[in-house]
């Protein structure tokens, strides 16, 4: 009889735990910060943002055209971290009406949005990060989504060509000849406005669709050690000047109003090369 009772006690225990997923022995967390900067003459500067309509220009592109920045916002998603033992941690992606996981909207006007908290990471030494700039099909094809992907609050959704803008930049330049439409901070009568809405998520071979999201990887210079006691802070940078001064030199006279995938190809290429890994605080 005693053994039977023991058996049932065991069964009861099994019931209690049977629905729990296997948890790794220990977990920790990591913060990944995206710091938007301007690299001027090789020196990193914190960004100076302008009020919409302001003709005070803090920056100059490589063609000598002065400009300022009113708005800078982009999506980071599908983060993966690779550990020194080869294991890969994939941040969970979820997009439903009640909210999202794994999609992060980095907004220069909201400092808190620039630090991504990755909780419940398996303990380990991580030495590589990979992420997507933009939102791929999982985030679009589930229909109306809340949280970071809520079209009403993110203002990053193209209604006419459903999908998310990967990166939105708006500002003014004395070289712009105006006429910008469909912008958030630039009014239609603004003669100096610029709007660059970089998007295009349909990655379908054999079609003409332009895919502008970018998947980017960086090796860390030191290992980011995650365990119950240690929560490293990984510091990434995004050089806004690189959007215009990178591989493709963007002329603000003429190319200052981008609202469809094909018009954004060059800037998407520049965007990819404007991200850098900077350092880790262990």
């Amino acid at each position: 009889m005693k053994s039977i009772i023991k058996l049932f006690t065991l069964l009861t225990l099994v019931i209690f735990f049977s629905c729990d997923k296997d948890e790794p022995a220990t977990t920790g967390s990591m913060e990944v910060e995206f710091d938007n900067i301007a690299i001027v003459n090789g020196i990193q500067q914190q960004l100076t943002m302008a009020t919409p309509g302001s003709t005070t220009y803090s920056y100059t592109n490589s063609l000598g055209q002065k400009f300022n920045i009113n708005l800078l916002r982009y999506y980071i998603s599908a983060i993966e971290l690779e550990a020194t033992d080869g294991t890969v941690y994939k941040d969970v992606l979820e997009a439903t009406a009640s909210g999202t996981k794994g999609y992060y909207l980095i907004d220069e006007s909201k400092p808190a949005s620039q630090v991504i908290e990755l909780a419940n990471l398996p303990s380990g030494k991580y030495n590589k990060i990979t992420f997507t700039v933009g939102v791929d099909s999982t985030g679009v094809l589930n229909g109306a989504t809340g949280g970071a992907l809520d079209p009403a609050t993110s203002k990053m959704f193209w209604n006419w060509n459903s999908g998310y803008i990967a990166l939105k930049f708006e500002g003014q330049s004395d070289a712009s000849n105006g006429g910008v439409s469909g912008a958030e901070t630039i009014k239609a009568d603004n003669a100096k406005g610029m709007a660059y809405h970089i998007g295009g998520w349909k990655n379908i071979p054999g079609t003409a669709f332009v895919y502008n999201n970018k998947r980017i990887s960086f090796d860390f210079d030191t290992d980011a050690i995650v365990d119950a006691k240690s929560s490293p802070h990984v510091h990434m940078t995004f050089d806004v000047l690189g959007l215009f001064n990178g591989h493709h030199k963007v002329d603000f006279t003429g190319n200052h109003n981008v609202h469809k995938p094909s018009d954004g190809v060059d800037i998407a290429h520049n965007m990819e090369e404007s991200f850098s890994f900077d350092h880790i605080h262990q």
Binding site: N142, G143, A144, A152, K155, N159, W160, S162
Partner: peptide, 25 residues
């Protein structure tokens, strides 16, 4: 065919300045 999910149809009318001229927010 620019809209790929039924959920995303209404904002095209709601936010079009020539139609309902509103903002979702």
């Amino acid at each position: 065919g620019g809209v790929v999910h039924l959920d995303f149809v209404p904002p095209n009318a709601i936010e079009n300045p020539l139609e309902m001229d509103e903002k979702m927010a």
